[in-house]
């Protein structure tokens, strides 16, 4: 476990040096200290379960992102239109979507993607469900259809094997 912390800390230090561009002793030691601190915090969070394939997830991300950004733009335009509309055609409501078959990282990704698209955001995350607040009935129904969940479950690479 100590090795994992040290690897993460040195990667963070590399990022630090890349971004600051200074190699003075003061800045370097501050970088080492903060790198170790952040690596320890990440370790405490224990986000990485041993059964999770990070590489597969990262390599598949480019297939997901274009679709997701299109979705972000589309929902932005929708919410903007509703705000500018004189009658404010909104119907706020809360609903739950299931996260069955998604592992921890995929659930986090799913919850974050829901929040990143305007019109929906995550209120609460349980073991099996995510509680979502939607600006309109339509966005809630669209989320219930589960297209986004499908694409994220492809990311984690479980549906292919099971």
């Amino acid at each position: 476990m100590l090795i994992r912390i040290l690897i993460a800390a040195s990667l963070l230090l590399l990022l630090w040096v890349l971004l600051s561009g200074h190699l003075g002793i003061l800045l370097l030691s501050l970088g080492i200290a903060s790198g170790l601190l952040v690596a320890w915090l990440i370790h405490r969070l224990a986000l990485q379960k041993p059964n999770f394939n990070t590489l597969y997830f990262s390599l598949n991300l480019p297939r997901f992102l274009p679709w997701f950004f299109l979705e972000v733009v589309r929902s932005n335009l929708d919410v903007s239109w509703r705000i500018l509309h004189p009658k404010l055609p909104i119907s706020p409501n809360t609903s739950t979507v299931s996260t069955s078959k998604l592992n921890d990282v995929a659930t986090t990704t799913y919850a974050n993607c829901i929040t990143l698209t305007p019109g929906t955001y995550t209120l609460n995350v349980d073991d099996q469900t995510i509680e979502v607040h939607s600006l309109t009935q339509e966005t809630a129904e669209k989320l219930q259809q589960g297209k986004m969940k499908e694409r994220i479950s492809v990311l984690q690479g479980r549906l292919n094997t099971s």
Binding site: V72, N76, V79, S80, L84, L88, I90, P92, P118, Y121
Partner: peptide, 26 residues
């Protein structure tokens, strides 16, 4: 600007968050 307008026009806290997320994303 639209997000800020929404922040003022929308009725309560939960709906205002939606307007704020326009500023945050696009």
């Amino acid at each position: 600007l639209i997000g800020t307008l929404g922040l003022m026009r929308l009725p309560d806290f939960y709906t205002r968050v939606h307007a704020a997320s326009i500023i945050d994303s696009l």
